[in-house]
Design a protein around this nucleic acid. Structure first.
Ligand code: SF4
Ligand code: SF4
Lengths: 132, 132
DNA sequence: AAACTAACGGACTTAAATAGTCGTATTATA
DNA sequence: TATAATACGACTATTTAAGTCCGTTAGTTT
């Protein structure tokens, strides 16, 4: 409950790595350096690349590097990219109100949505450049 | 990811219900009123009772009511009671550093622990009396 | 004392989300 | 043309969450 996924952790580690070096790097390099499962990391980096957070170069001396400055990438950008959406702490935020079978009797929605806002601002305000 | 469990939601609904009325109420009453699965709700309430957040009375006119004032119960109290522990956003908080297979190479631990602190204070500072 | 009703508690099953793997295609370079 | 990298989709396995079942215990009322 309330746990970040490993994919997000791997993404954060990879992004932080790229932010700390200047040159291009590869998924293999990162997976070996940090002992991360290669296939999983590779897919995470592909998503980050697709969303223009990192830039990719195929071919024999290819790899990845940051596509923007470290202080313009928020943790939420990374989470949203990897998970596909902003994570909600309750079903009605993720899937819409109607999807929750008890929404007509729900008395806790408003306060939980306030908590959600707090949570989002925490992840929005923390930038990659502050990952120290 | 980052989602509250239904057990916690059910607990919050039940607690809020008890906070809004004066008299004793039963698990059956709440489960019917809010259309919650009885067995699951019952176990949640038993945990809340065991941790002295609500008081139980067995027997034919028994039931539950709050054991303390609504402004002295935090959302974290409820979460901690139902989940059995304070939830950590990463493995090393829940299970200890050694349990994470990559902890020796982890570069993101410190900032994530900061986020954890933020998160905890949000849940600690919100009281049942503010569930509106 | 018997019947009733509500809390108590453990074991179990099912469903869903997460984590990890595999195979293959594409692309750029040397 | 061989090589090394990204790119993608399908698949399996593991873990967690959700829900159910069944029997027990304990007060109340008749
Ligand atoms: S119970 Fe209320 S807060 Fe939870 S998902 Fe349903 S509507 Fe949203
Ligand atoms: S990767 Fe780092 S932050 Fe995540 S659980 Fe392991 S030690 Fe903790």
């Amino acid at each position: 409950m309330l746990k970040l996924s490993k994919k997000v952790e791997y993404g954060l580690i990879a992004i932080r790595h790229m932010a700390s070096i200047e040159s291009i790097t590869t998924a293999k390099e990162i997976s070996e350096h940090y002992k991360l499962p290669f296939d999983l990391l590779a897919k995470v980096m592909q998503k980050l690349s697709k969303n223009k957070i990192i830039a990719s170069h195929q071919g024999i001396h290819g790899g990845y590097k940051l596509a923007k400055s470290a202080d313009s990438i928020s943790i939420m950008d990374i989470i949203q990219t990897i998970e596909g959406h902003i994570p909600g702490i309750v079903q009605c935020i993720d899937e819409g109100l109607e999807k929750c079978s008890i929404h007509q009797n729900c008395t806790i929605r408003n306060p939980l949505h306030k908590i959600q806002e707090n949570l989002e601002s925490v992840f929005n305000n923390l930038k990659v450049s502050e990952l120290v």
